[in-house]
Each structure stands twice: as structure tokens, then as C-alpha cells.
């Protein structure tokens, strides 16, 4: 199959996702309001309670708002990834997922394109958030606005692939709502999004290990370092490994022979 065919398919899937995003304005606003509430209310309340020592990539003491900004960016991507997979469960229940799956283009490519489309939308949301966050004084180096991009792509892919795998494993929309609670909240809270890992280690060692091996921590820290134009290899490699694992699982999940579609018998 020619390369141009793949490109047209990719373009079509991204365009559809973008159009859906434009048509669903409330989705855009809710995606922005959520982290802004955390930033404006939660962070303001906690800044006096929590002191953050100087830790890389920061070179000086920072206000709490600055510390949680990367976590909130990852939160946008986490919600977007889950929402995107929620729409896949909906599409599958409603039937429109089938339209994509019966395309002659290989299924792995279709799923990857769908993932990239979701990441593209999440990046738009992140940049909108960064613009508004600058009003709170969260202003990274100018180069950070560019160097954050690769981290956003990889973390978006990882969280999207996780959502896609969950969507393949879940039978009905109602079940998915439950999984959201069991995935989103534990992932977010048991990570370095709201508090640094060393602080967690001081409180509880086992919780520290939970947070340390939580894929979401790798997304948060990759974003944090890249926002300050730095690379942390440990987190960088970790996030790529998690992305490959989740992507592999989601492609298997949607494989007509081995996957969960077959087991579910018709959904």
C-alpha cells in the first residue's frame, strides 16, 4: 500500500477528531476549567501548607502553583486520553467504531492515528492552559514552550494508549465510568503531580514506591523537565517503555483474532 494512502487516512482521522473538538465547545472549556480550578483554588490554599525545597529542574524556591503546573498539564492529557477512549467505547456501542475498523488500512495504523489525533487535541488544550497559567505567574523559559512539545506527544500517547487498552477491555459504557474512578484518581493522586516524591517517601515508603512506579509520574516529570528545557533520562526512557507496553496491549486488544472484541462477542 502506498505511503500517500496512509497519509490521507491519518489526515482524515486527525481532522475528524479536530472537527469533533471544535463542534463540542463545552469539551474544550471543561478541559480547561478543571486544571484552572486546581490551580486557582487548590494551589492557592496549599501554598502556605506545603513548602517545596529546591529540586531539579528548579533552580530556586518556587511557589506551589509553579510546582503543580506540570502535574495539571499531565492531568489535561490524562483526562483527554480517557475521554478519547470513552468515546471509543461509545463509538463501539453505537457502531461508528466499526466504520474505522473495516477500513482496508492495517488496524494498528488506524489505532495509532486515532491516538495521535487525541494527542493533537490534548496539546491544543495544554497550550491554552499555559497561556492562562501565565496570568498566575507560571512563566517557564520561552524555550520551554517549544521543548515541552516532544514530552507532550509521548505522554499524550502513553495516556491515550492506556485509555485505548482499557476501552478494548471494557464491555459497556457504564463499566467504563467505574474504571475512570479506579484509574484517573489513583493515578493522579499517587504520583508526583501534587507533591514531590521525596515528601511522599518521608511519609510512607510503600506509597513512595507506588508513586515511583506509577506511569503518570513519568508523564508529569517528563513534562516538568522539558518545560524547563531539560531532559531527565530516567523519566524519558520510562515513559517511552510505558508507551510501548500500553500501545502493544491496545493493539492486541483490538486485534480481531486475539483481542477483546472477539471475546465479547459482538460489541
Amino acid at each position: 500500500m502506498k505511503l500517500i494512502i496512509y497519509f490521507r487516512c491519518f489526515k482524515g482521522i486527525v481532522l475528524r477528531e479536530a472537527l469533533r473538538f471544535v463542534h463540542q465547545k463545552e469539551r474544550f472549556f471543561s478541559a480547561l476549567v478543571r486544571p484552572l480550578v486546581w490551580l486557582g483554588i487548590f494551589a492557592a490554599g496549599f501554598r502556605s501548607v506545603l513548602g517545596v525545597a529546591i529540586i531539579p529542574p528548579y533552580e530556586t524556591y518556587i511557589p506551589y502553583e509553579v510546582y503543580i503546573a506540570p502535574g495539571l498539564i499531565a492531568m489535561i492529557q490524562l483526562f483527554n486520553g480517557m475521554q478519547s477512549s470513552l468515546s471509543m467505547v461509545y463509538d463501539r456501542e453505537m457502531g461508528s467504531m466499526k466504520t474505522m475498523l473495516v477500513s482496508p488500512i492495517p488496524r494498528w495504523f488506524l489505532l495509532c492515528s486515532k491516538l495521535f489525533a487525541g494527542v493533537f487535541v490534548s496539546i491544543l488544550q495544554v497550550y491554552a492552559f499555559l497561556i492562562i497559567a501565565s496570568l498566575w505567574g507560571i512563566i517557564p523559559p520561552i524555550s520551554g514552550y517549544i521543548t515541552i512539545l516532544p514530552a507532550l506527544v509521548v505522554s499524550g500517547l502513553m495516556l491515550g494508549a492506556l485509555g485505548m487498552f482499557l476501552s478494548s477491555a471494557i464491555k459497556q459504557l457504564e463499566n467504563f465510568a467505574g474504571v475512570m474512578n479506579f484509574v484517573i484518581f489513583p493515578m493522579f493522586f499517587a504520583s508526583s503531580a501534587l507533591y514531590p516524591l521525596w515528601k511522599i517517601e518521608e511519609t510512607s515508603e510503600w506509597l513512595y514506591y507506588v508513586c515511583f512506579y506509577n506511569p503518570f509520574t513519568y508523564a508529569v516529570e517528563s513534562i516538568r523537565f522539558s518545560l524547563y528545557s531539560q531532559i531527565n533520562l530516567e523519566y524519558g526512557i520510562g515513559i517511552i517503555v510505558f508507551t510501548i507496553i500500553f500501545l502493544f496491549l491496545s493493539i492486541i486488544g483490538y486485534d480481531p483474532g486475539r483481542g477483546n472484541l472477539q471475546k465479547k462477542g459482538g460489541k
Binding site: K2, R8, R16, R20, M94, T99
Partner: peptide, 30 residues
């Protein structure tokens, strides 16, 4: 193969034209 599934599979939030262009893209049509 062309398929019309039992359940409706059009995207309700998109226009007819956008739906048809999406399908064409899935088949690699310019």
C-alpha cells in the same frame, strides 16, 4: 467491500459532507 451496519454509524455531530470525507480518508481517497 462496502458495508451498511445494522446500527447507524454516522457521526451525528458532523455534517453529511464531513462524514463522507472521513470515510474517503479511511480508504485513502484524495
Amino acid at each position: 467491500i462496502g458495508v451498511v451496519f445494522q446500527q447507524p454509524t454516522l457521526d451525528l455531530d458532523l455534517s453529511v459532507e464531513e462524514n463522507l470525507h472521513y470515510h474517503s480518508a479511511l480508504h485513502g481517497i484524495s
